[in-house]
Amino acid sequence: MKFIDEARIQIHAGKGGDGSASFRREKYVPRGGPDGGDGGRGGSIIAVADRNINTLVDYRFARIHRAKNGEPGRGADCNGRGASDVMLRMPVGTLIREAESGAIMADLTRHGQQVVLAQGGQGGLGNLHFKSSTNRAPRQFTKGEAGEEKELQLELKVLADIGLLGYPNAGKSTFIRAVSAARPKVADYPFTTLQPHLGVVRVDDARSFVIADIPGLIEGASEGAGLGHQFLRHLTRTRLLLHLVDCAPLDEEIDLVGQARALSNELLKYDETLHAKPRWILLNKMDMLSEEARSEVRTLFEQSLGPQRFFELSALTGEGCRELCFAIMEHLQEMRAQNPEADEPVSDEPVSDEPTSPPSDLGAESVPDRHASDSSESEE
């Protein structure tokens, strides 16, 4: 299944049913009076977060979604039937905006979360409501309200604790295969990863974190080089970035430090907030270097990039990966202890079925989706 992380849709909530102007007419019942019922409520459009869905592909082709109208009221005090709501199931991590203004309507960050996107119209009132001591035969009634209509932009941002960065062939997919059960494609040519992948790294029985791998980034991505910036949005919810550096490139004249700085500049051009996230440097493929060369590479990076955390590893052999995973887990636990409200753990507790209205001020809450996608499509 193709990975789709953007879609534009139109939603139309149902109209409320009209009220009825009716009078009771029965034999031997003089002056029966008004008995017109109310119209039924129109159906609403509700977004539901579902961790079993990984892409927005359903909304790429089904662009218009309509709810049914409420039934009109009838005589004999019969109210019209309300229409059923339309539930739009979306991946956890979907950000919903109004297409024209760009205003955020909803941010689906936990499984089972429900948000009303378009409210169905209220049903009209029957003439029964207009009866009074001075108006015993009212012929007034009201029509049902129109349902809301909106055009929405859907944007999927995967939920992960850790994000992988690096040039093509730096070993990101090999690394995620080494530390998790994810199985992205690995090959000896650039841009084998064409879509993001998630992997769950289990440190021990009680502790784990989610890591996201995106297609390789190169210098000039902000101008559209390579795959551009189209997948960087998937790193905006992460808490820590891991920058993998290929320390044994085929071309020995490549400036490794220059590449690291160029990638950092691309992050800055895309989003200052993303650039400001903690970033660790992973010196990969160290198994292909001699002890002397390893020491030179480490010294070169430490002197050029300043005070950052550096790790030597080999994603292919697994050297240094276990120690790195424990260091990541400790870092995440420290961050959660410092700001527990910013990181709510994923829970299997049932979520209330009562949908909420779109929030006016969304926090930067980021709850990882523990559903890892192991696609067999083109991957790195």
Rank of each mutant, 00 (worst) to 15 (best):
N135V: 12
R136T: 14
R136F: 01
R136D: 12
A137L: 13
Q140E: 14
F141E: 01
T142R: 12
K143R: 14
K143M: 12
G144C: 10
G144Q: 09
G144T: 05
G144W: 05
E145H: 13
A146D: 14
G147K: 09
G147V: 10
E148Q: 15
E148M: 12
E148Y: 00
E149T: 11
K150R: 15
E151L: 00
E151R: 11
L152E: 03
L152R: 07
L152Q: 04
L152A: 05
L154A: 06
E155D: 08
E155C: 12
L156S: 05
L156I: 02
L156A: 02
L156Q: 04
K157R: 15
K157T: 13
K157Y: 03
K157A: 13
V158P: 00
V158A: 10
V158E: 03
L159Y: 00
A160Y: 02
A160G: 11
A160Q: 03
G163P: 02
G163H: 04
L165P: 09
L165D: 10
G166Q: 07
G166I: 08
Y167I: 07
Y167V: 13
Y167N: 12
N169M: 10
A170F: 03
G171P: 09
G171R: 10
K172T: 05
K172M: 06
S173K: 06
S173W: 08
S173I: 04
S173A: 08
T174R: 05
F175S: 04
F175P: 06
F175A: 09
F175C: 11
I176T: 10
R177W: 04
R177G: 05
A178L: 02
A178D: 02
A178F: 00
S180I: 09
S180D: 03
A182L: 05
R183N: 15
K185T: 12
K185S: 14
V186G: 00
A187G: 15
A187H: 06
F191V: 13
L194A: 15
L194E: 07
L194T: 15
H197M: 12
